[in-house]
Write a protein that binds this DNA or RNA. Structure first.
Lengths: 225, 225
DNA sequence: TTCCGCCTCAAACGAACGTTTGAATTTCAA
DNA sequence: TTGAAATTCAAACGTTCGTTTGAGGCGGAA
């Protein structure tokens, strides 16, 4: 046994057969973990999807956890490079607009069905019950969702807010869209009947923005412009 | 095989040995499911705790799901009979006070370690990924948390609010305290260091009440009186 | 062509899961 | 006290899980 179980040490070109196997496993794992979570996603399902052998996971990634780690790193990278909102936007945009972009970014997977949305569903699983893998990864470098939530929150809370209240509000804001991502299934059925086309996600963003901006005391959804 | 796998059809007095086994299993299951969730809690752990035989679960409850159903029913009954806030209170108390009681009721398990708090942690698991058992039970008669959330929300939202927005807000409010119950472990460590004594839960209730009442746009935590 | 390291493969391993079996025991009314 | 029903018990069943095994295929440098 001599797999490359470590991270990604200067791997060779994608045409190499072994690299194709790696990529296939990571892609399949992304889909499976998005649907079933880490503990619920089985390596047998992943290898079947990837048309690879079960032993390949141990060989290439050292095990299920190593493979999940690769998926999480790809997810973090994707959000850092391709998100609707980056850290600078969270600091410089009008704060209400930054909040809306934040909510939209983390509600869009309700309608889209691409790689990006799979990453988001994995994050939703992590906000349920964080895995050891994600906690370790997050300790090395925080995930964009947490960073953005923090940046936005600090633009709303008054200057004298205690550190504790700031942390609580950051955790709170990060969980606002995730609540609905987790309950997407529920929202699509009776009695909600949210169809999750682009328009209904827009509505949800506005409703949620209204709650986050004004709380229950606010005068309903806050409209643009 | 001739167990009483059905609900609770006029069972005999508690002194009956079989009834002691039943109660022991339900109590042990409550603790185990609170800690590990339904799918994560094993019947072996439950029967060990209850000093009962594994087959007893199938015999008395028809299986793991039947046992969980009993636990959920006990939890629902407990909240309906002993909660800080009942449906009438949610309708008649000053709405801010009703909201605070709601939040307090569902944040208290962070500090208490009794049967009541175990029920709440089970609800927290259910808000993560609802089990089929709970969905069915909830369809027959909704759980107090949902009913109370709905009653409170409808006292805040303006009269013209759409049915959809009302449902979304109800789901939203019900998830506000659960976010922190789920993340209790996280909150007790760095960088939060919330110790979860009575006082820090009071603070958390106030912080969260401020966010729910005024949103991020509110002027920080809203104080009593 | 030969050889060696990288990689894949079918198969099996050991552990954990919920459930079932069938005999033994206990309970309780007659 | 007796006998049938209710309940308990140790053991095993069948499935799924993540991982390991060891043989074999493959490709590129010598």
């Amino acid at each position: 046994m001599s797999g490359t179980a470590g991270g990604a040490p200067a791997r060779a070109r994608l045409s190499r057969p072994a690299e194709i196997t790696r990529r296939g496993l990571v892609d399949a794992a992304t889909a499976v973990f998005a649907q079933h979570g880490f503990s619920g996603g089985s390596v047998r399902l992943i290898t079947t999807k990837a048309k690879a052998n079960q032993a390949a996971i141990t060989y290439h990634f050292g095990g299920k956890e190593g493979l999940y780690r690769e998926v999480l790193i790809a997810a973090r990278d994707a959000f850092e490079k391709m998100g609707l909102l980056d850290e600078e936007g969270a600091r410089t945009l009008p704060r209400e607009e930054a909040l809306r972009l934040f909510l939209r970014q983390y509600l869009l997977p309700l309608v889209k069905r691409n790689q990006f949305s799979r990453y988001l569903r994995i994050f939703a699983w992590e906000t349920l019950s964080p895995t050891a893998v994600a906690l370790k990864l997050s300790a090395e470098r925080p995930f964009p969702m947490v960073v953005l939530s923090s940046r936005i929150v600090e633009r709303f809370l008054p200057a004298g807010t205690s550190r504790r209240d700031g942390l609580v509000a950051t955790l709170w804001l990060a969980n606002q869209p995730m609540t609905f991502v987790r309950n997407a299934e529920l929202l699509s059925r009776e009695p909600f009947n949210l169809s999750f086309d682009a328009a209904s996600v827009d509505e949800l963003v506005e409703t949620l923005a209204g709650l986050c901006l004004g709380g229950l005391g606010g005068s309903g959804p806050v409209r643009h412009g």
